[in-house]
Design a protein around this nucleic acid. Structure first.
Lengths: 214, 214
DNA sequence: TAGATTGTTAATCGATTAACAATC
DNA sequence: TAGATTGTTAATCGATTAACAATC
């Protein structure tokens, strides 16, 4: 089943986003070349990527936007919904909490946690901010599998370890520190804003040197 | 010069972060195997990646942490500093503004912009929030090359286009929408939180199915 | 010198692309 | 049928790894 390449998997969410936008503007059918142009890929690549989903297109016609969306969602999230907790209610945590598009992708925010006594008990959106000590009981009550880690870097590794202990399966880590190190098997996806900016700076330099080579 | 592979470039910031942490705890020398273990890479890969920087190690001994940090920074940012503007002061914008580690990597936040009249004139950290109309003059005064785009998805493409017109070279885009489409040449790095969560969900599923194969 | 670790080669592995037969 | 576009093959391209000579 999961013999889909890592590279393809990483592109599926991009296809999904484009397809959802096409659907929103009322497009029912799309060709590989159109998708390719929007995303800056080759049409070969689009067809190859989509073909791993199991022949979703119609030769001579294209792909049905609606069914393609369903199939990609399926492939990505396993057709199930995930309960997610947010740990750390700084500005970043607040931004993440207000983020549209979680629910749309089968992700339910079921709890919000912080250690700051001044924040505990106050509300963030629909959620009451709870102390970290209540994490265990919530994970037991509801099946919580994913966590968003938005705490300061200094405490992130310790909190990550705790998340592993209570039985979380995956962490989306925003702390600019390596939390993998202290964990045994938990799945981590890192988002480090400084790293992305460094990549941007380098990409700009590269684009310029390519241009000057013409 | 820039014949360094994309894959290697994407790992350099990770090396940098680890090395900086090692330096902070007083480590002067490090071996490829140590770095590999921390990041989950192979030692071969670490040596190969670092070798593109031009023979920074000493056989039988290892790498000098300090000089390696300098060289990687050099390679990534071109040894120069970048002026950056932030556009969009929602929760995400606020979080980004307070983010440590920008200055540490040669990135200076020189201006903060929004369209909301209620926000304009108020302060965010050290910066007064300015109307988008003042973007042009700031870009002229100071050489602003990078922008962080943290506005709602609905207006992101239009704002991105404007950033291109005023002469910005690169955008770090947080809006969950394809802004590349309407731009001609500007360099974009996208960070889409929903996409990262989807990748996490899939990585968790994959890890489980691999485990059950044992 | 003996032990350790790099830098680099050659072999392997995986991902992308071009091209076209299949088929709507 | 004629035109269009997919699905897939084979060829190309690029990235990773194992291994070891070079050398500290």
């Amino acid at each position: 089943m999961s013999d889909i390449s890592e590279a393809t998997i990483n592109r599926l969410p991009l296809y999904l986003r484009e397809l959802e936008q096409l659907q929103r503007i009322g497009t029912a059918r799309v060709q590989s070349g159109q998708i390719a142009k929007r995303l800056g890929f080759s049409d070969s690549q689009v067809r190859r990527d989509l073909s791993v989903l199991g022949s979703m297109g119609q030769r001579g016609v294209g792909y049905d936007v609606r069914s393609l969306i369903g199939t990609i969602r399926n492939q990505l999230g396993g057709d199930r919904s995930w309960n997610v907790v947010l740990v750390g209610v700084g500005n970043l945590g607040k931004a993440l909490c207000g983020y549209r598009g979680f629910d749309q992708h089968g992700l339910n925010l079921v709890g919000v946690f912080d250690v700051d006594p001044a924040k505990i008990g106050t509300k963030l959106g629909d959620h009451v901010i709870r102390p970290l000590g209540e994490l265990e009981s919530l994970v037991e009550e509801q099946t919580v599998e994913l966590a968003i880690l938005a705490v300061p870097a200094s405490v992130a590794p310790a909190v990550a370890q705790r998340l592993e202990v209570v039985g979380i399966s995956g962490i989306l880590n925003f702390a600019p520190v390596n939390v993998k190190q202290k964990l045994s098997s938990l799945t981590i996806v890192d988002v480090d804003l400084a790293i992305e900016l460094q990549r941007l700076a380098h990409a700009v330099l590269r684009a310029r040197s390519e241009k000057s080579e013409d």
